[in-house]
Design a protein around this nucleic acid. Structure first.
Lengths: 207, 207
DNA sequence: ATTTTCATTATACATACGGCTAATGAAATT
DNA sequence: AATTTCATTAGCCGTATGTATAATGAAAAT
């Protein structure tokens, strides 16, 4: 574990580039983002992107990896074993998971923004992201939805449709925050607004 | 009303560029789209974009105008006067409006794709789109939601949150169709899949 | 003290971009 | 038939892009 002053500075530079890439990629998409913009926003020379990440494509993959690893660390759709006996317990668990998911979307809107940009059209990047991260998450969310269907919390309809209804009910309020601010005059970054959105989402989805 | 062969061809060229712009802008965003790509996809020289639309920015505005005018022609959130007397009539009306909205999203996924790209960050383009089109639609959808709340069809929670929950439940299944195909192995373009999504959405939203 | 390492910078290159002017040539007008 | 109109194309300009290589200089190793 080296921690010389040079190594520390190197890691700081790498992290600054990654954070800058998250912001720029999520707002402009892969094709609309320039490595020079990302470097300038991070306050470093643009050649450092090749040095630290190899290429624009590799930098994008590193950014996506960061997003999904953070998501895995901060929240989970998985069902805790042997804890959910009564119907009320499962309803409360559903509410808790959905609340955490909305809070994740509110705290890190760049995650859904970046992935949305890439899911609008098919590409090698989308294929890589689905194979590496999204397919597994989809399986987890499928189990989650099926459990709630068995409990009568969610209606017995198409599972993929339900998953996208839930995700769509949670994400756009934060990914489209600039539009929300302009059109409705409220800020999806405010805690009170987030709380109201969670209340609305749970009132609609969990019965 | 001129309709000489030259005028007809000119309008055909203009229309081809506009349709190509819809596709490219919706998939790559404004910054990620190049006027040369749009022209090549329409099968014309790139200088024709300046001739017919003035600039890339004006072409984008023309594309957005086309989308919202088509939406206004194909569907409406407005409440038909003096027709909704009983609670059941209003529930049926709600179902009908939501069904039409989902069908619009399914038929024209490029609309939501293009606007989503632009709503991820604040810009003069977003300001123009909200002032010109979205604010009015938001007012209509607000009236629609408040009516359903008075009828007990929708819960009495934050109206902006409800609007984005409804829109989010309807759009992403089609805007993110490439991801849906890869992850779930189903095609949101299929009529049967659309019907299942409508069933799911109505089961969740209309009670 | 000298040499080596290596994170960072400077610079170059081929390509692509948006915007513009001039040229073209067929349709429309005279 | 001769002339004008104008939708379309050819081509240039300055700039921006992704990537590659060489130069730099301070920290680390000797």
């Amino acid at each position: 574990m080296k921690s010389s002053s040079r190594t520390v500075q190197k890691e700081a530079t790498r992290a600054a580039i990654l954070q800058s890439a998250l912001l720029v990629f999520s707002e402009r998409g892969f094709d609309g983002s320039s490595t020079r913009d990302i470097a300038a926003h991070a306050g470093v020379h643009h050649a450092l992107i090749k040095y630290h990440f190899g290429s624009k494509d590799t930098l994008w993959r590193a950014a996506v990896t960061f997003l999904f690893e953070r998501q895995a660390a901060e929240m989970s759709f998985d069902i805790p074993p042997g804890k959910l006996h009564t119907r009320q317990q499962r309803r409360d668990y559903a509410r808790q998971v959905l609340r955490h998911y909305v809070l994740y979307c509110a705290r890190h809107p760049e995650h859904a923004r970046l992935m949305m940009q890439e899911s609008l059209r098919d590409s090698e990047r989308l294929q890589w992201a689905t194979d590496t991260f999204i397919a597994g998450i989809a399986r987890g969310s499928e189990r989650f939805v099926r459990m709630l269907q068995r409990e009568g919390v969610l209606p017995d309809v198409s599972v993929p449709a339900l998953v996208y209804i839930i995700v769509g009910a949670a994400q756009p309020f934060y990914t489209l925050a600039p539009e929300v601010r302009r059109v409705w005059g409220i800020d999806p970054g405010d805690d009170a607004v987030i709380a109201a959105h969670i209340d609305a989402l749970l009132a609609v989805l969990v019965r």
